[in-house]
Design a protein around this nucleic acid. Structure first.
Lengths: 179, 179
DNA sequence: TAAGCTGTTTAGAAAAAAATGAACAAGCTT
DNA sequence: AAGCTTGTTCATTTTTTTCTAAACAGCTTA
């Protein structure tokens, strides 16, 4: 008989028992929810699954538990957890006398949104600011444009500038409402 | 000598002349900007290009002009324009005596954001509401949970509910600030 | 009604993104 | 130090998304 890949059940570390059937059903619902959210946010499905399974767990989960419950490869889980930590969406919890990492969810919307803004939105906004300056220059210097054309282009650049300002106004407001 | 694929230059329809060099440079800058924005929003690059080229043009563009300026296939442009129209990001402009469609950009941030919310966010929020009800039910009915575990899960569900409420609060506010 | 435009649809190719799995590092334990 | 355990890295494979090209539909004019 080949190796059966049994879990070592005797040396009892402090991890959760195998989830009951109803726990599994609940977990599945949570995961669905976050997978759908991942779709909206444009992040990989697996990241939604990982956050979901952590969010659905009453206690912090180990890396190994995440891998087993989701049937994902270690590689995917490792990468997914890295992304989630960088967003501040999961934290590691310390468990005395256990070398393994335990993961628990950040549940404050304010902090989750802040992470998204920091990691995904802000860098692009800054880059956009640079580009916008460049466009403005070129439009000013523009040769070979009829004056009405030049006028339209200037107004387009001004529109963009006003978008930028409104965004800059909006983001702090978002933070405030969520806090 | 094989066919040279000349544009018929004699029958002069009301479309713009070939853009000058500086117009091309300006156009390129605008396009870069919107391609980058497409990245943030998670829409295909080609859609960013199409919106960009329309935004950069002092006059409305024809389908054919978009195809030529971007070196995209007719298929991509057709699909991209459909998506942009569905978002309300481009409109068709009527030109008397011309059978072709002319495209011009929606430039009000308020309307652009409204389109995104309508097409991309709202459907997911509604779906999330449904799922959330389901989870709540299952957590209430949940067997095989210790009472502390059940307590944590209930609080997680409540968190989700509060996220939903805050989002519902936030979206109108966004509309207001942008208007 | 044939022939020419204008644009749409869609099967399949090409490109991009995501997931896997095997090698590897780092830390314990014996 | 040899052998676990825990997790990371990264080259490769798989899956998904995006783009293309060719057929086609609907008008308009000859």
């Amino acid at each position: 008989m080949p190796k059966l890949r049994l879990k070592p059940e005797n040396a009892s570390p402090p991890e959760a028992l195998a989830p009951s059937e109803s726990q599994l059903a609940i977990q599945a619902q949570f995961i669905e929810l976050f997978v759908s959210a991942a779709g909206v946010l444009g992040v990989p499905r697996s990241i939604g699954e990982i956050y979901g399974v952590i969010f659905a767990a009453p206690q912090p989960l180990t890396f190994q538990e995440i891998v087993e419950r989701l049937n994902l490869s270690k590689g995917s889980v490792s990468q997914g957890l890295r992304a989630l930590r960088s967003l501040g969406a999961v934290r590691t919890a310390y468990v005395p006398g256990d070398r393994r990492d335990y993961f628990e969810p950040e549940t404050e919307l304010r902090n989750l949104v802040a992470g998204l803004l920091r990691d995904r939105i802000n860098p692009h906004l800054e880059q956009a600011s640079d580009r916008l300056g460049k466009v403005r220059q070129q439009v000013s210097a523009g040769q070979g444009l009829s004056s009405t054309e030049a006028e339209v282009l200037r107004s387009r650049v001004n529109k963009l500038e006003s978008w930028r300002k409104k965004s800059a106004l909006l983001l702090p407001l978002v933070a405030k409402v969520l806090g």
